[in-house]
């Protein structure tokens, strides 16, 4: 489903990713771990299409199509979803309006009919209930006045509504207490399925106790330096990242 080939990315003229290769098949959950500054968030942003993240070489193929040639909204409509590390606050845009606009824009781009108000409300109510999100919160501006945990739950709510085929979760565990981590992880796990792939980016192993990956990659200095099974996360927790930083140098 996802094939990243020889990806080189610069930000502000600085080389961050140096020939990254990654293949994720559908139904799989891959974890990307690595020290600070290894390029984890850059990978997430370049996949989603953030301005300023320039791919100088390589390809990101989603079902064979190079998403680097698409606008962020086109990538989303193709089924790519990035759960932000720091979800943004948008005062004056009610969350419900945001969700509905996003959902209908994607449906429209895929040639599907827009949802009616009752259909939409039912979808949101069901998804929000499972994530313990109060409907009143969704009438407020997007993420305005939300706690860190509420913002992350809101990201997962968007993911649940938009039903993407490829989910990229960027440090979804940061800023979460144990209870919130459980709610968010359960939300993510409910979305696991044979037709959906996930890339879970994290610094710590604790998230991977809840969202158990099929494959774990270590990212260092802009490339994957080691790949293994879920036990690799535990090894890293014990040994730290220092060995990979040295090896990659």
């Amino acid at each position: 489903m996802l094939e990243i080939k020889n990806l080189h990315v610069t930000v502000d003229g600085k080389q961050i990713l140096n020939g990254l290769d990654l293949t994720v098949n559908k139904g799989e959950v891959h974890a990307i771990m690595g020290p600070n500054g290894s390029g984890k968030s850059t990978l997430a942003y370049v996949m989603a299409g953030k301005a300023g993240y320039e791919a100088t070489e390589g390809k990101i193929l989603l079902d064979g199509e190079n998403v680097l040639e698409m606008q962020p909204d086109e990538r989303a409509a193709k089924g790519l979803f990035l759960a932000f590390q720091y979800p943004l606050e948008i005062p004056g845009v009610a969350t419900m309006t945001f969700l509905r606009t996003a959902l209908n824009a994607q449906r429209k781009k895929r040639g599907e009919a827009e949802l009616s108000t009752p259909e939409f409300l039912k979808l949101v109510r069901d998804a929000a209930g499972k994530l313990e999100i109060n409907m009143d919160m969704l009438r407020r501006g997007v993420n305005v006045g939300f706690s860190g945990g509420e913002k992350k739950r809101n990201e997962i709510l968007q993911m649940a509504l938009l039903q993407p085929r490829l989910c990229v979760l960027d440090e979804t565990d940061s800023g979460l207490d144990i209870d919130a981590l459980k709610v968010v992880s359960d939300g993510v796990n409910r979305l696991r399925g044979p037709d959906r792939a996930m890339v879970v980016i994290t610094h710590y192993q604790r998230l991977l106790d809840h969202i158990v990956p099929d494959v774990v990659h270590v990212l260092s200095k802009g490339r994957i330096v080691k790949t293994g099974g879920k036990e690799l996360a535990h090894e890293l927790e014990a040994s730290g990242y220092a060995q990979f930083q040295d090896n990659a140098a």
Partner: peptide
């Protein structure tokens, strides 16, 4: 705010519509 625009677009909202949402919110205040 380009970051806000990117956030909206990353959810599938086309650029023009994302701008409309943000300007509406700005004026709506």
């Amino acid at each position: 705010d380009e970051n806000l625009k990117f956030y909206l677009m990353a959810r599938g909202i086309p650029e023009v519509e994302a701008e409309t949402l943000l300007v509406r919110a700005f004026v709506g205040d």
